[in-house]
Amino acid sequence: MSSPSIATETRPSLGELALVFFKLGTTAFGGPAAHIAMMHDEFVRRRRWISEEEFLDRLGAANLIPGPSSTEMAIHIGLLKRGWRGLLVAGACFIVPAAILVSIIAAIYVKYGALPRVAGVLVAVKPVVIAIIVQAFWNLGKTALKSWWLGVVGALAAVAYVFRTHELLILLGAALLASLPMWGKRAKSAAVLWVGAIPAAAGIAVPISLSRLFLTFLKIGSVLFGSGYVLLAFLRGDFVDRLHWLTQQQLLDAVAVGQITPGPVFTTATFIGYIIAGTRGAAVATVAIFLPAFFLVAISGPLVPRIRKSKIASAALDGVVVASLALMGVVAWQLGRDAIVNWQTVAIALVSALLLLRWKVNSAWLILGAAAIGVIWHG
């Protein structure tokens, strides 16, 4: 690994750390891939608090543990810059604004039985999100692709993801493939494993309790790898099919709120908790689903520099990094098919990409501008 750049020597105060993550928590729309792209823009390109290599290493580490990847990236950055205090400040300031906003929307939903009208805003914001993801994919890819073999690993990871291979298996397979040159002829082959969904067992409704709500979301936060689509499968299995605490429509509305609000998509749990048990339910669900992320990052964060000292482990981490970027690229492609649907959205995406790549405009301003356009178009 190259020697640390001047970016790694920057030590922001806890106040600075809190302010920047609070800003991200209130403006980071578009899901984990977009959040990670915005963090790259904020901390690597603009503030130069961390280097490209450090960012990619933490991205790989975040993808190796269960939980919300963008929130774990925030926690990793806080840990890297200010130790355990930074870990708590960065994570909390990224989560809390979204949790408060989602709780307010949930209260409106429970009272009126419907969501606010946000279709026009979504139509305009989504193309900007795609442009942000593409920008991060391009910038990070130039650092991550250190050899032709890593390019092959990334391509195989993308193909596996398109064919619905489980994300964890993709990352593990990429780590194995990337480390093959280090092992030499002892490793003869590698296989791609496929995982099928297991239907949740049907049953009668279970009485609602805060303790069961806490334990259910704690389990999800402890074992869930992958995107918001995987989260949807877990939520449906637990809360619709097994516990019968939600209807299918309530679940879909909860996921929609998680997508249209800034900050972590996992604040979908906040919405569900409020529907089930009011304000206390929202607080319990939020703490439970995010608590494992703080614990797992605190354990895994200090191991990243040690991993880089081993040639085999370092090569495996490189594989995880390129696989993570491959997943980001496929997500951008999949979302782009739904987001860029007419000449207006094409124009927004192209202009956003130009402003990001050529003039380095802050992505938060682009999202706010697109939201304003959406309000005007569909007002």
Score class of each variant (00 low, 15 high):
S2C: 00
V230A: 04
A175F: 10
I376T: 15
G31T: 08
L325R: 05
V322N: 12
G273D: 05
E54V: 10
D253M: 14
A28L: 05
L88I: 15
G173R: 01
W183A: 14
K185G: 13
W148M: 07
A37R: 01
L177R: 00
I170H: 00
A339I: 12
V44E: 01
V265E: 08
A205V: 09
T216Y: 12
S363C: 13
I376E: 04
Q250C: 02
G301A: 15
M39I: 00
G273K: 10
V121I: 15
R337G: 15
L368W: 14
I348W: 11
E54S: 11
W343M: 13
K185V: 13
E9K: 15
R85Q: 11
L368D: 01
Q135C: 01
A99G: 12
S324Q: 07
V89R: 05
A61R: 00
L357K: 12
I105T: 05
N342I: 04
V351W: 02
D57Y: 08
F21W: 14
P199L: 01
L79P: 06
F22R: 00
T267W: 02
E167P: 11
A371Y: 06
T270G: 06
I65N: 13
S179D: 00
T279G: 07
N362Q: 13
T71H: 07
I307W: 04
A74F: 02
F295H: 08
V361C: 05
F225Q: 08
Q135S: 11
R11K: 11
V223I: 09
H166E: 15
S314T: 01
I275F: 10
G329S: 01
